[in-house]
């Protein structure tokens, strides 16, 4: 080449003939973007403060529990109980993360840019939901992993001890998954209704806060059946009820038998499934409407 002096040529517009990815990869890209958004990755320093504050709190608690256990040799909290103990932190985390995921997009009007692309409108909502579920599950599951590692390295029963510990961990992780699914679907549905992040966060906390007194009232009514079904009325106690039924000891150990749900365990499970299914359907309906606007 004779031209070595570094002249920049305008090569004009280039057509693109390379590969175009399919629906799965696009869904994956949007999902990963969502998970990163929740933890403030790729965003301003301000957006990172709250998520990482919560992450550090749950990690410190988990480390503390592990330390106490290794010192006095007593299980302060089972893995599943850890999720219960952190429930309020999870609620606040979801109340900040869900508006971050969907309300911001509603507010800025960026949705037409998404929906004018090949992405089916349901995929947008589902990828955001999956991102929030993942984030909440990581928030609860990560510290459990810390507890597990602590216990596994300090066990004095060798491989057998590690194996037992693992069998304890798995229900804990499943239970964390239940928390994540229930909380994420409620929080995302509420957040998708408004473009104002403060309103959305308030709304999410309100759903969890306002339903708690209902449980209180129902559980002191003079009817054993109503009392045993009372915990259906609020999402956190609903999840607790399902856990009490499904996990038994792993959750209720040292708590005097856990929640008095009687024989209604399957009802709790069914209601939880219906609640999640209802929230997801409403979320999809909501985005059908938004997309056509």
């Amino acid at each position: 080449m004779s031209d070595a002096t570094g002249v920049i040529h305008d090569i004009g517009y280039q057509r693109y003939t390379g590969p175009r990815l399919g629906r799965r990869q696009v869904f994956g890209a949007l999902y990963l973007h969502g998970v990163r958004t929740v933890f403030g990755l790729g965003r301003s320093a301000k957006a990172k403060i709250f998520p990482w504050l919560v992450v550090s709190v749950v990690t410190v608690v988990a480390a503390g529990v592990t330390a106490v256990r290794s010192q006095i040799g007593e299980v302060v909290m089972t893995y599943a109980q850890f999720a219960d103990a952190m429930s309020w932190l999870v609620i606040f985390f979801a109340a900040v993360a869900a508006p971050e995921l969907v309300s911001r997009d509603l507010r800025s009007g960026v949705l037409p840019l998404y929906f004018s692309r090949p992405l089916p409108r349901g995929d947008y909502a589902l990828s955001k939901l999956l991102a929030l579920v993942t984030a909440l599950w990581l928030l609860l599951g990560g510290p459990q992993l810390v507890m597990f590692l602590g216990a596994a390295f300090t066990t004095n029963r060798g491989v057998r001890g590690v194996w037992d510990e693992l069998l304890d961990l798995l229900p804990g992780l499943l239970y964390a998954g239940l928390w994540a699914v229930v909380f994420a679907s409620i929080a995302l549905l509420v957040a998708s209704l408004t473009g104002k992040r403060a309103f959305a966060a308030g709304g999410i906390v309100a759903v969890f806060l306002m339903t708690t007194p209902v449980v209180g009232v129902l559980s002191i009514l003079p009817s054993a059946t109503v009392n045993e079904l009372a915990f259906l009325a609020s999402p956190p106690t609903l999840v607790g009820g399902v856990g009490t039924w499904a996990l038994g000891d792993a959750l209720t150990q040292g708590q005097g038998g856990g929640m008095p749900i009687g024989d209604f365990g399957p009802v709790y499970a069914a209601v939880a499934v219906l609640l999640v299914a209802g929230c997801v359907s409403l979320l999809l309906l909501r985005y059908r409407k938004v997309a056509a606007r």
Binding site: R20, R23, R104, D105, S108, G109, V110, P112, L113, S116, R117, P118, P120
Partner: peptide, 18 residues
């Protein structure tokens, strides 16, 4: 989806996250 893959759309209103 096939149409949208080959079409670019510029909306009228504000559409950019700040």
């Amino acid at each position: 989806a096939a149409v949208r893959a080959r079409v670019g759309y510029m909306p009228e209103h504000d559409a950019l996250p700040p």
